[in-house]
Design a protein around this nucleic acid. Structure first.
Length: 653
DNA sequence: GTAGGGTTAG
């Protein structure tokens, strides 16, 4: 008997096609597989799909994803499943097809992460992604929201260039992103501190025919606040009211926050009290508003006023949260009242608020500053035990705390532990260590830290450069410092006053007083100087024995008013002490205190130390009492070694 | 979307 196998032929072809992959697929075969995938995907029969997986092609994937455009979740699952196959990677086309499907179903999160990984993992540029989206636009029957989503992806990746390339290319092609995409882009510029670019881009946006919405105006208010232009920011609110693009609570809060941060509490309060009137009853202050005010009062040490605001919040029935308490706790700790700070923590807990990382960081920081090493370590372990996660702030606080107490090696060990686990991404802890390396005159160590941060992909920032310049200046290596300045700060095209002040300090310390004066004149001509500039020059005159020039400058600073601060007084008090004029130094401190400038740790230490050196410790308590009465927080070490011993003598006597 | 904590002057 002759047996015919003809009836099996179809299934043979079918099977072989499945096994040997894409190059054998004829159009009709692809159709068959396509239909098989669709039928089985609908039922989520992954086992079956597993069998066909060797025959997958990009064109198949695109077809399937498009077919499931009305079940986007399933399309996404399929896409992810395909991605998990060995030896298969998605093409730009299949990625873009899925992005169209996801955006059309308003699943922006997944659409954004697909595009993000296209750029990050596959190294596609924003313009290449745009090309992919445009090529598949028609066949996916898409809408322009995908382009907004692409801009959003760029802004999330902090790619200014990318976002702008996309916007510009689309405009050339006759597509327009919406105002929302522009707002995202403008927001990115502000977040990166690119204020100049923000204004240029904003003008370009308006010039190309867009009209601002409330978010755009809020960004403008934010930009003006960043530039400390509070009155202009307020006038934007009035403009908004006039053209009936209603400001919201965010518009007001940004101005109130900036005013508070600038210490302009009267303005901040006035705005808060008048928010309802100004907005015609449409906006009322909220928890953020009040938190900003509390923070402002705390920063200028008006803690009673801050507590009154908290009481007012409670009275008005406005909720409070961790951010209400954190500035208060920090404020009291900053003032040296750690006991009050801890009591506020208890109060927080009673109010069912859990002290979080920020609160712990603040307390640990001030404990370190006060020299309470053990308590700081205890609090750190308490934090970890309570599963309150340390963050980059915690690490930099720990680093500074260890350096401050002379444990540079311990700080370095902690540092290596942290960087090896990739726990820090910003420059802070590096900057702190580099600074302390210079302080312990370990230039090689500082340079090593700089290269290790670069190797680890942490970008040195202005502070890093400033620290390097400052470190070299302190070593008397002005030429090297200027060279670093040229290669970094100058090359970045940004003037940085801190760096100029460091160079100025270096010149002063080297005794190049004339060069220092020239630099100050130059800065003066450009209106680019601050109280640090003056204080540095003042200090320079003092250490170089230029008595007359020092006093002349000091008087000039007092006359201008805004230039003189606690540091200026400390310099002069120290100078008078060095000349043996202790009485005059104390006199100056009293004059300063009567101006409302509170003696600080340095005033305290300078005067107490010099007083005891000249007159012995007999009447030092009087001086201590006076300064404390005026609000000084005694330096712990000075107090323990020079003041408290004679306090005991007194009580014993 | 806006609010709290860490780095460079005495």
């Amino acid at each position: 008997m002759v047996f015919s196998f003809t009836f099996l032929r179809g299934s043979f072809v079918f099977r072989r096609g499945f096994r040997t992959g894409k190059k054998l697929l004829s159009p009709s075969t692809e159709d068959i597989i396509y239909k098989a995938i669709c039928v089985n995907l609908k039922q989520r029969r992954w086992k079956f799909l597993e069998q066909v997986s060797p025959s997958l092609t990009n064109s198949l994937v695109c077809r399937v994803v498009r077919e499931f455009r009305n079940s986007p979740q399933l399309a996404l699952e399929f896409y992810n499943w395909v991605e998990a196959r060995d030896n298969f990677s998605h093409s730009l086309e299949s990625c873009c097809t899925l992005v169209h499907v996801l955006v059309n179903s308003r699943n922006f999160n997944d659409a954004l992460s697909i595009m993000e990984s296209l750029m990050l993992k596959n190294g596609k540029s924003p313009l290449e992604v745009l090309g992919g989206l445009m090529n598949s636009y028609e066949i996916c029957n898409s809408n322009p929201a995908v382009f907004d989503a692409l801009v959003r992806t760029c802004t999330q990746l902090k790619s200014v260039e990318g976002a702008y390339d996309v916007i510009r290319k689309l405009r050339l092609e006759g597509f327009w992103v919406t105002i929302h995409a522009w707002n995202n882009f403008l927001n990115l510029l502000l977040k990166l501190g690119e204020t100049d670019k923000f204004w240029n881009m904003y003008m370009e946006m308006v010039a190309s025919g867009y009209s601002e919405n409330v978010n755009t105006f809020n960004l403008i208010i934010y930009a003006l606040c960043k530039e400390c232009k509070l009155l202009e920011a307020i006038s934007v609110v009035y403009l908004m009211l006039k053209i009936e693009i209603w400001p919201n609570v965010v518009s007001f809060n940004m101005i109130i926050d900036k005013a508070s941060k600038m210490g302009e509490m009267d303005l901040a309060l006035k705005l808060t009290r008048n928010t309802e009137v100004i907005s015609g009853g449409s906006v009322s202050p909220n928890i953020v508003t009040y938190n900003c005010i509390i923070n402002g009062f705390c920063k200028i040490r008006r803690l009673e006023s801050a507590k009154n605001v908290l009481a007012e919040m409670i009275k008005l029935g406005i909720d409070f949260n961790e951010r209400t308490y954190a500035p208060l706790i920090d404020g009291y700790a900053r003032k040296g009242s750690l006991d009050v700070a801890f009591r506020l923590c208890d109060e927080m807990v009673e109010m069912r608020l859990i002290p979080d990382t920020v609160v712990y960081n603040s307390l640990i920081y001030w404990l370190y500053i006060e020299g309470e090493l053990e308590e700081a370590s205890f609090l750190l372990s308490d934090m970890i035990n309570r599963r309150i996660l340390p963050d980059e702030f915690t690490y930099s606080i720990l680093t500074k705390g260890l350096c401050l107490s002379g444990h540079l090696n311990k700080a370095l060990r902690v540092h290596y532990y942290i960087v090896e686990r990739n726990l820090v991404k910003d420059a802070y802890t590096h900057n702190i260590l580099i600074n302390y390396m210079f302080q312990s005159r370990n230039i090689a160590g500082a340079k090593q830290l700089l290269s290790s941060m670069i190797v680890r992909g942490i970008k040195p920032d202005m502070v890093t450069y400033g620290t390097l310049v400052d470190g070299h200046c302190k070593e008397g290596k002005i030429e090297a410092a200027v060279q670093i300045y040229d290669k970094t700060v100058k090359a970045d095209g940004k003037s940085n006053l801190v760096v100029y002040n460091s160079i100025l300090d270096g010149l002063c310390k080297k005794g190049s007083i004339d060069a220092a004066r020239l630099l100050v004149d130059k800065l003066q001509q450009n209106g680019f100087l601050d109280s640090v500039t003056y204080n540095t020059l003042l200090h320079g005159f003092c250490v170089n024995g230029e008595v007359e020039k020092a006093f002349a400058l000091f008087l000039e600073m007092i006359n201008v008013g805004s230039l003189v601060n606690i540091v200026s007084y400390n310099i002069m008090i120290n100078f008078l002490c060095k000349m043996g004029l202790i009485q005059q130094a104390m006199e100056l401190m009293r004059a300063m205190a009567s101006q409302g400038i509170i003696p600080d740790l340095i005033t305290y230490t300078t005067l107490i130390t010099n007083f005891v050196k000249s007159y012995g410790s007999d009447n030092v308590i009087e001086l201590h009492d006076y300064m404390v009465l005026k609000g000084a927080v005694p330096d712990r070490q000075t107090y323990q070694s020079l003041v408290s011993p004679c306090l005991q003598e007194h009580t014993e006597g």
